[in-house]
């Protein structure tokens, strides 16, 4: 069996999740505390990937990143970045596609904390950043874990966006979900089954660990 698609899948998921974690915290923090009238607009944009067919997202990104168009050629000429049919493009697409899975749990977690925690920290002279880092985030660990795992699992499972923007290039953009499709098309059911079984098992174990952790199972166990 060719392990490359699986390795590529998990590499993509790890990088995507790491980027999402960093960019989602400020977004979620802003959304949970702002009274701005732009909030519903940003909330909608973040949530769009939940309902939009992945092919729609993939299609527009393909158009936008294409060197034949203004934005794509600018990226290519000035930054030397080519986002279509490349691993970099997959990362960008996955970050956008999985954004709600990271932002929403963190936002919900932050909103559930009493506002006095934050206010108490401010009255002690602590900045917003220190408060977020030392008080707010440590108290929403389950939400952070949920965000990380959902984004990871969602990226492992994506197909439409990847196919549109990445194509099917072995070692570069051929992730496991596409490899399965490929093998089925070639009537190679045994290989398709190996990939599928591995994805199935890994996703099951990851999600199970989250529910056990957030349900306090391990805590009960260790006490």
């Amino acid at each position: 069996m060719d392990w490359q698609p699986l390795v590529l899948t998990f590499k993509l998921a790890v990088i995507t999740t790491a980027i999402l974690f960093v960019i989602s915290i400020p977004i979620a923090s802003w959304l949970s505390s702002t009274k701005s009238k732009f909030r519903p607009v940003l909330e909608t944009l973040v949530s769009m990937p939940l309902v939009l067919p992945p092919t729609v997202l993939g299609f527009y990104m393909l158009v936008a990143f294409s060197p034949a168009n203004a934005f794509g050629s600018w990226l290519n000429d000035w930054l030397g970045i080519k986002l279509i049919f490349s691993f970099g493009g997959l990362v960008v697409a996955s970050v956008i596609y999985s954004l709600p899975f990271m932002v929403q749990p963190i936002q919900a977690g932050l909103s559930s904390l009493p506002s006095t925690l934050k206010e108490a920290s401010y009255t002690m002279g602590k900045s917003k950043f220190t408060t977020l880092l030392k008080i707010l985030l440590p108290n929403i660990k389950p939400s952070l874990l949920t965000g990380i795992v959902l984004s990871f699992a969602h990226t492992v499972g994506e197909f439409g966006v990847v196919l549109m923007i990445g194509g099917n290039m072995p070692g570069k953009t051929k992730v496991a979900s596409i490899a399965i499709y490929d093998e089925v098309e070639a009537l190679n059911y045994a290989a398709a089954n190996s990939y599928s079984l591995i994805l199935f098992t890994v996703t099951f174990v990851i999600l199970l660990l989250v529910y056990l952790t957030n349900g306090g199972y391990f805590k009960r166990f260790s006490q």
């Binding site: 009493p114 006095t116 925690l117 206010e119 108490a120 920290s121 401010y122 009255t123 002279g125 602590k126 900045s127 008080i135 440590p138 108290n139």
Partner: peptide, 20 residues
Amino acid sequence: LKPQQRKVGYVFQDYALFPN
């Protein structure tokens, strides 16, 4: 002045102790 710049000790009704 921001709350950070005012020298005030504030005891909240719900205590607002940091659970972590």
